[in-house]
Computed example of a mutant assay.
Amino acid sequence: MSAQHTGLGALAILSWGTLGTLGALSASLPAYLVLTICFAIAAGLGWMICRKTGRTPAPLLDRRIGLFAALLAAYHITYLSAFHYSAPIPVSLINYLWPACLIVLGNLFFGLQSGAAGYAGACLGFIGVGVLIGNDGLELRSSEAIGYGLAFVAAMLWALYSNLRRREQTDVIASVTTVCFGAALLSATCWMAAGFDWPQMQSSDFLVILALGLGPAGGAFFLWDFGMRRGHAALLSIMGYSAPVLSTVLMLMLGMGAPGWELFVAIGFITLGGIVVHLGGKNS
């Protein structure tokens, strides 16, 4: 367990604090198109690193590579699609239940062993994100139920992906490069099946896609893989609770929602969740 690799995972979480904002800014574009380009950028980054370091990308037809590519594509397609149905801040915040989902699934099925403190921290995280959703709490309006449901499914998909990747023994760069390439192919296939629509795009749209590909929907995958497989996975799961706070603050600064007391109450719950898990880990 390496502090350096835990730090890389933390950088990925910091990058994901921008995912909600960038996802909302790309909501006018077809999700399949956006993700095809983003995954292609990530695969290109990985390929250049492989060339420079003498690595060979993992084989595309490997069954586990295919599974990871499918989960990666499914998560992002589901998440970006949610912005087409609901307001950006609630969608982003529901999706950020993934750290709690990661701990629960990890404890139940993947030997994470964060103990009772992990469950308690996860519960506090659920409460905190629920408060952040707004005055109605977790009560979903029918007009937005699809978007909220997609956001929660996305959270579960990312938790599953992360737990499965944590158990991998292959080289991170070589593996993630091919996973991203496979996800790009899957996204492109879905885009073609949906009509291969290429909308009118402005320079700002290309900048948003580039930022997604270099950061939260591309480059961050490599950092997260290092963190989950060689760092402190349970601690990173709790640090993930900071992502909704970062995301919400950034969205508020850009005028994508109105500030309220919910933000400060949620920060308290989220921070307390991290403290509970940290103290529980020290005492176990």
Rank of each mutant, 00 (worst) to 15 (best):
192 M>C: 13
201 M>E: 10
205 D>M: 10
217 A>K: 06
196 F>I: 03
215 G>R: 11
198 W>Q: 02
213 G>S: 09
183 A>K: 00
202 Q>G: 15
198 W>N: 11
193 A>P: 01
190 C>G: 11
216 P>Y: 08
234 A>I: 01
214 L>M: 12
226 F>I: 07
194 A>E: 13
216 P>S: 07
191 W>A: 07
208 V>L: 05
194 A>S: 12
216 P>K: 04
188 A>P: 01
196 F>G: 00
204 S>Y: 11
217 A>D: 10
189 T>Y: 04
213 G>W: 09
195 G>N: 05
220 A>P: 08
228 M>F: 11
210 L>M: 13
221 F>V: 13
206 F>H: 15
227 G>P: 05
204 S>C: 00
214 L>E: 00
188 A>E: 06
195 G>H: 01
209 I>E: 11
207 L>P: 02
190 C>I: 05
205 D>N: 14
199 P>W: 03
189 T>K: 02
199 P>I: 09
193 A>N: 03
220 A>E: 06
195 G>Y: 07
212 L>W: 06
229 R>I: 05
227 G>R: 00
183 A>N: 04
196 F>W: 12
211 A>I: 00
222 F>W: 07
185 L>P: 02
226 F>S: 12
185 L>F: 05
191 W>T: 06
210 L>H: 04
218 G>S: 10
191 W>S: 07
219 G>M: 08
202 Q>T: 15
210 L>R: 00
208 V>M: 09
198 W>A: 10
208 V>Y: 07
201 M>V: 14
199 P>S: 00
185 L>H: 02
194 A>R: 10
223 L>S: 01
189 T>D: 06
234 A>Y: 04
193 A>L: 13
205 D>A: 11
234 A>P: 07
205 D>K: 02
221 F>N: 13
220 A>F: 07
208 V>T: 14
224 W>T: 01
213 G>P: 11
230 R>C: 04
195 G>W: 07
211 A>M: 14
192 M>I: 14
215 G>I: 08
186 L>C: 07
208 V>E: 01
225 D>C: 13
212 L>H: 08
220 A>W: 12
207 L>R: 11
220 A>N: 04
206 F>D: 12
204 S>E: 13
234 A>T: 12
186 L>V: 12
193 A>W: 06
200 Q>N: 12
233 A>W: 08
202 Q>S: 15
207 L>E: 08
227 G>W: 08
212 L>A: 07
221 F>W: 14
197 D>W: 10
219 G>C: 05
189 T>I: 14
201 M>K: 00
184 A>P: 04
196 F>P: 02
189 T>G: 13
203 S>G: 15
212 L>D: 03
212 L>R: 09
207 L>M: 15
209 I>G: 00
196 F>T: 09
223 L>G: 09
227 G>A: 02
186 L>I: 14
229 R>N: 09
186 L>R: 02
222 F>Y: 15
230 R>V: 03
199 P>G: 09
227 G>C: 04
197 D>Y: 15
228 M>G: 06
216 P>W: 05
197 D>V: 13
187 S>I: 03
183 A>L: 01
200 Q>H: 13
201 M>A: 13
210 L>A: 15
198 W>E: 05
218 G>K: 09
189 T>C: 13
223 L>Y: 04
220 A>G: 09
219 G>A: 12
222 F>K: 00
195 G>I: 02
185 L>C: 12
196 F>R: 08
206 F>G: 15
227 G>F: 01
205 D>L: 10
207 L>K: 06
219 G>W: 00
232 H>R: 13
231 G>F: 08
194 A>H: 05
221 F>Y: 15
